Simulated assay, not measured.
Amino acid sequence: MRKRRRKKRRSNKKFIRISQIMIGIILVVGIIIGFNQYRINKDKVVYSNDVANGQSSDSDNQSNEVTAANDNKGVPVLCFHSISDDPKAKSSIVIPKDKFKQDLQAVKDYGYTTLTIAQLNDYLFNNKPIPKKSVIISFDDGYKDNYTNAFPILKELNMNATIFVISSYLDGQVYMTPDEVKELSNYGIDIESHTFDHKQLSTLSYDEQYKELKDSKDSLEKLIGKPVTAIAYPEGKYNDDTKKAVVEAGYSMGFTIERGYADKDDSRVLLNRICIDYTYKPSDIKKVLENLRK
């Protein structure tokens, strides 16, 4: 009987020692995992792109080097229009596909991260940090070739972009169809307003301007099921009534075509952009990104 008791006590002690060792191992492993996760989270800068399919753009260009919230480093907002190889479409704002791809590849090669409109808004007005090398890729008008030609290149290079759409022009011929606009939005391309009828706002009364802005915003939001927060002025024209109407219509940002960077000294309804035409080379893109001064 005593032998059985001693044997049982030895067995219990052995079980306790094994249990203590196992608990110790679990605790050590947990500490190591927790510490590594802490380091990863500490070093990682997360930028939400609101991309419906969950992808993060320009991930290979992002770094821990950010523009501080209280800094006022301007952000280049590049403005494109039509991307086409059609020989009949001769205009300074029509850029061949290969040339457009070279422009975007230059942006990527120089280490720039393409922001969403929400990220730009948060940086300029909500003191949120962004990568030091940040840029907005934008398009005016919503041409059909933005979908057929530009979109595949944006996907290939994994870049964010913003298209300012004329909401009553979605005819499927010169301009995109509503379904194409919706597809772009669902993918993660920002769809914003270029007014309802592309009327030169500075020639209109306040009430007419407000209607142009509000009707565009309402129709686009109904189409894509997302807030429309930014407006690009047709031909860059505006007046004092425009600035008031933009705010009253519910927009957060208004973009001109006045050459310069968008920065915190700009009025939120008079943000600068840089129009890109077919003459630009990769070296010109670099100058625009890094050397342009107001």
Rank of each mutant, 00 (worst) to 15 (best):
G260S: 09
K264D: 08
S91M: 04
D284N: 12
L270W: 02
K244C: 02
L201V: 12
K182F: 03
K264G: 12
V75K: 05
K90A: 08
N121L: 07
L115Q: 05
A69Y: 14
I274G: 09
S59E: 15
S219A: 14
V246T: 02
Y112I: 13
N53V: 05
E248Q: 14
Y38D: 05
I32R: 03
K286S: 07
K144W: 00
P87F: 05
Y280P: 02
Y147I: 07
S19E: 03
Y38V: 10
S92F: 03
R268F: 01
N49A: 09
I31F: 09
Y112H: 11
T114M: 04
N121W: 07
I23Q: 11
M159D: 06
T256R: 06
E235G: 04
F164Y: 15
V66N: 02
D43W: 04
D43H: 10
Q20D: 00
V66Y: 05
G188L: 08
D85W: 05
S63A: 04
Y233A: 11
V165E: 09
E235S: 15
Y175L: 02
N149T: 09
H81F: 12
C79T: 05
S84F: 03
D171T: 00
I274Q: 15
S193W: 02
Y175S: 01
R6E: 11
A249M: 07
N186M: 07
K7R: 12
G24K: 09
L115W: 08
L223A: 03
R39E: 15
S57G: 11
M253N: 12
N272M: 04
M22F: 10
N158W: 00
I21P: 02
L154M: 12
N53G: 05
D277Q: 03
Y278F: 12
I23C: 11
S19T: 06
S193T: 06
S92A: 10
A89R: 14
K73C: 03
I93P: 00
M22K: 12
E180K: 05
P178H: 00
F125E: 04
V107D: 02
N64A: 14
T242H: 02
L271S: 09
I23Y: 06
F151D: 09
S48W: 13
N149H: 07
S48T: 13
A118C: 01
K3F: 08
R2Y: 07
C79Y: 00
L270C: 09
D207K: 10
S138I: 00
I130A: 05
D140A: 14
H194C: 06
S134N: 04
D263Y: 08
D71V: 01
Y112N: 06
I31H: 00
M22W: 01
Y147P: 08
F80N: 11
S216P: 03
D140S: 13
K14V: 01
V246R: 01
Y112Q: 09
N70H: 13
V165L: 10
I276C: 00
G260K: 09
L115S: 03
N61R: 12
T177H: 02
T113V: 15
T203S: 15
N49W: 06
I191V: 14
D240W: 00
N72C: 09
L270H: 06
Y175K: 03
S92L: 08
